[in-house]
Design a protein around this nucleic acid. Structure first.
Lengths: 352, 352
DNA sequence: TTGCATCACTCACACGTGTGAGTGACACGT
DNA sequence: ACGTGTCACTCACACGTGTGAGTGATGCAA
């Protein structure tokens, strides 16, 4: 409610209830060091409700010395399922500590240091390394930075390994690994790549072929990948399966395979990552790796409590929150049927 | 820089420069009502830089009565390209008014009214209707709400019409329109649907068949759409082309057509919407409608200036920021070749 | 000298909270 | 009557800014 044009303050509530402003503050914040008669409490509560009183966040932050705002700094990446799922999990995690998570999209012309003049967060969550200038500003403003990337790392490691293990279980012995050179996602791509190569070694497979794609997943990329695939699949000891950085580039690889005259999964199995919604609707439907961020959310919650509320140090995160979604784009090595296994999650029903 | 454990304040800068705190404030804010000697200005600037002084956002907000924060309230929707592009455009638009945009993800257990205890935005941007409780809270907190949906509406209208016009230009006279019943996206789906039906009428086509899909784009949806397609394409005056709510459901429709024994685009042309990154990588690649939100950003900027800075009322938005991306899933009616036109944006190269 | 304007700067208040310290009234035990 | 303790509540400060009003010094015209 607004009282003569301005939003209601604690003083308005106090006046309406016939008590002092301190009384209002004590009652609404429920201090255990003060006591008030039940009828006063009721009167204050009623007045607050009547006026729809909401304490002014800036004033509260100034007085308490902490804002209750956790700022998630995101680069300006195109919408990805995993980021959306991650944001949802982090939102819940921050809420569970009694704070609020808001997201800042950092892009050219909108730097973190600009935003810090308008918002004073209690902590920063960063999922990708901040520009030097920005982390310096965070340091100067005395805002602790919690690096989410390190909490996801174990998931990425597990995911990279899962791709390889899945293909190895299907009998593939010679794999190709397709990574990307985009600097923005380098933390993820590097982790997945090293995990995949480590898994190859651990399983005793042949040394993998590795290639890196530059630029967006478009026609040019398809051409480039097609060239790579022709190279990989000719000669002796050809590659029979490819691990891709994500579902987008897996789709690129499918298209490239087609243009190179390779059947998927007959000649080449392809496994993606992230389980984008469209992955189950491609032809062939895409085998991929799906992330579950609920464990990550819990882990970040503990790390926040440690950093902000003097809680105990967070335990290492478990990495079993990642699993293969088996669809049509992978098949046992040497399998002559072009159909592949029926998709486990999504498959066109054959009902008449 | 932190001075004895706390972040530097204007008082620290003043002490370092040997002036009063007011002088620091006046110099750093560049008031034209006060004048200072050049050497004092230099000394203050140097001290501020030395201490990496950043004014406390909450204190500034409290004093000025406005926070400079614009809060974009987003529902918990899975990552979509259009939302990501929209957020980027809005970020720039808000920055152009000298404020900062942050995004709040509203989901069960994380209501706007909770967040408003931690953050006091100067304005709200809503892209989907807020729950009653939340808009009441915004009203009570005296925070103006700028409805983005209404600025996008003209784009949605143009997009819905474009789907129909594109198919009509290919000679299709009897269309199906596939919308969704998800309440969350109802503002968009409703606008696109009415625009499409209006375009059908305007072009003098046969009355369209309309169906609504419930639930996510999964196997169940494919089955349901397949049934619908069989109905639409049998009997006299069959449907030869379908407009879909977005690319996800267009992909569902492609899969459904395949399971119904229909060739795309030979028997049925399908046009999607949003130009998701994967749309150009499906088989067949998807003809779709692509949004450009730069005009929307400029419009929202003007509306913010009107609402917050006493600027003039914003002019109506132009709606030419939407265009068809022609790929393989649409073809002239009755065309017997299953290949369709070569994708204009993305097509697998046929080089050997 | 006096009056007045300009310059360079400082004083002091207000924004809306949260909270430690204080205060008057009352009850109770001695 | 008097000290002591509890109850119900209020006073007053501090958080860090932005800014209108004020102030002493200097210059300059009369």
């Amino acid at each position: 409610m607004t009282v003569n044009g301005r939003r209601a303050t604690a003083a308005d509530v106090a006046a309406a209830a016939g008590v002092s402003r301190s009384t209002v503050s004590y009652i609404l914040n429920g201090s255990d060091r003060q006591s008030f008669s039940p009828e006063t409490v009721a009167r204050v509560r009623a007045a607050a409700a009547e006026l729809a009183y909401l304490p002014h966040a800036a004033a509260r932050a100034l007085r308490k010395g902490q804002s209750g705002i956790v700022l998630l700094v995101l680069p300006d990446v195109p919408g990805s399922t995993n980021f959306a799922k991650l944001v949802a999990a982090l939102t819940d995690a921050v809420r569970a500590t009694g704070r609020s998570l808001v997201t800042l999209t950092v892009r050219p012309g909108n730097r973190l240091v600009d935003a810090l003049r308008d918002i004073s967060p209690q902590a920063l969550l960063e999922v990708l390394p901040l520009p030097e200038e920005d982390s310096a500003a965070a340091l100067a403003a005395n805002v602790p930075v919690v690096v989410v990337t390190s909490s996801i790392e174990s998931l990425d490691r597990a995911a990279g390994a899962l791709q390889v293990e899945h293909l190895a279980a299907l009998g593939h012995r010679r794999l190709g690994i397709l990574t990307v050179s985009d600097a923005q996602v380098h933390p993820f791509s590097a982790t997945r790549l090293t995990a995949a190569t480590a898994a190859v070694e651990k399983l005793g497979l042949a040394p993998p072929r590795v290639a890196s794609v530059t630029g967006p997943p478009d026609a040019r990329a398809i051409g480039a990948v097609a060239t790579t695939l022709r190279d990989w699949t000719t000669g002796e000891d050809p590659v029979t399966a490819v691990c891709c950085f994500n579902d987008l580039f897996a789709a690129v690889t499918v298209a490239a395979a087609r243009s190179a005259g390779l059947d998927v999964p007959g000649d080449l199995s392809i496994v993606g990552m992230d389980d984008e919604p469209l992955a189950g609707l491609l032809g062939p439907t895409l085998t991929t790796v799906r992330y579950d961020f609920t464990g990550t959310g819990a882990h970040i919650r503990e790390r926040l409590r440690h950093a902000l509320d003097d809680g105990p140090a967070a335990a290492p995160i478990s990495s079993d929150a990642v699993r293969v979604v088996e669809r049509e784009s992978t098949a046992p090595v040497g399998g002559e049927d072009a159909a592949g296994p029926a998709g486990r999650d999504v498959s066109p029903p054959r009902t008449s």
